[in-house]
């Protein structure tokens, strides 16, 4: 497949600037990574509504909560590893427990952070954000969806976690396709297997679906960009038709999208499922493509898991 590549971070900056123009009650915080997260763009346009908190994420989240308690809609950004793990208790007590309008938009998530290595590769962030009551978790598939998701959450009450990558990713949605918080979208219809993915794994699942098609297997592809609340109806509708599912995410197989789908299906539709994600281990330094291959996140891995789950269905 020939893809057009888009930057999620650039679209975050674009959407944030739009939101800043439309609403004077929107405030942005960063922890000394504004040139990387691209909140610097907002800072340039609205300097009085941007606060750099320095390399101090716990205080950034607490400050965000205070601003939100005073009626502001707050976007707080840094790398995903620090935005979630470093200040989980602050997010839990100050943001989620209080159900405040704080939008944590984290960049550099996943293994594709690459050469910086395990310390900077957030592979557990979906898991630890997803277990927090009141929290909404969104993993956009591409640049266009990032733009739409940011615009949507600005007007969506309550805490949100949005997970973005560092690298440019294939464009699988368009500016025109609707985005709604909590709704999965059907990108390709099929009848033999459901491929449910988030982030850049959506593009990889579309490639896998093409490969499966050539092997006579009809795969349905769902873009599950909101992991919490999970679009149970869309998943149920798809597996009722296909009878098996593969989930795919650039995150540990423990606790992320795959787990959310397992939790739902085990109590409703007991269909065979395989999870694609990094094994439950830390990452390492390397080029993005090499890491995606080593940690099991390629088209070939999705195809292999699909054939396995279809065999299980037939047993």
């Amino acid at each position: 497949m020939k893809w057009m590549y888009t930057s999620q971070r650039k679209e975050y900056a674009n959407a944030l600037t739009e939101v800043g123009k439309e609403r004077t009650d929107v405030v942005v915080l960063d922890a000394d990574l504004s040139s990387s997260t691209r909140t610097a763009e907002f800072a340039k346009n609205f300097p009085e509504r941007f606060f750099n908190c320095g390399i101090a994420e716990q205080n950034m989240i607490g400050t965000a909560a205070g601003l939100a308690a005073a009626g502001k809609t707050v976007f707080a950004s840094t790398f995903a590893a620090f935005a979630t793990g470093r200040c989980w208790d602050q997010i839990r007590q100050a943001v989620a427990y209080s159900n405040l309008d704080v939008k944590i938009v984290a960049t550099h998530a996943g293994i594709t952070v690459g050469p910086d290595g395990a310390t900077h590769q957030a592979l557990e962030d979906i898991a630890i954000m997803r277990v927090l009551p009141n929290m909404t978790v969104i993993v956009p598939a591409d640049g266009a969806e990032t733009y739409k998701a940011i615009k949507a959450i600005a007007n969506y009450k309550g805490p949100c976690y949005v997970r973005l990558g560092r690298s440019d990713v294939p464009l699988v949605t368009s500016m025109e396709t609707p985005f709604e918080v909590g709704k999965a979208s059907l990108l390709k219809e099929g009848s033999d297997i459901t491929l449910a993915a988030c982030g850049q794994m959506v593009a990889i699942c579309l490639e896998a679906a093409e490969e499966l098609e050539s092997r006579g297997i009809s795969a349905e592809v769902l873009n599950v960009s909101t992991i919490k609340p999970l679009d149970k109806d869309a998943i149920a509708k798809s597996v009722e038709k296909t009878g098996c599912i593969v989930t795919a995410e650039e995150h540990s197989i423990e606790g992320g999208l795959g787990s959310a789908v397992c939790e739902f299906l085990c109590e409703t539709y007991s269909v065979p499922q395989q999870r694609i994600g990094t094994p439950a281990c830390f990452g390492e330094s390397g080029e993005s493509d090499a890491l995606m291959k080593k940690y099991g996140l390629t088209k070939e891995h999705v195809v292999e898991a699909s054939e396995k789950v279809i065999r299980r269905k037939k047993q």
């Binding site: 716990q58 607490g62 205070g66 601003l67 939100a68 308690a69 208790d89 602050q90 100050a94």
Partner: peptide, 11 residues
């Protein structure tokens, strides 16, 4: 955590 939240309210 309180002082951070107070910072937010003050900002």
């Amino acid at each position: 955590q309180g002082l951070s939240m107070a910072n937010g309210l003050a900002l």
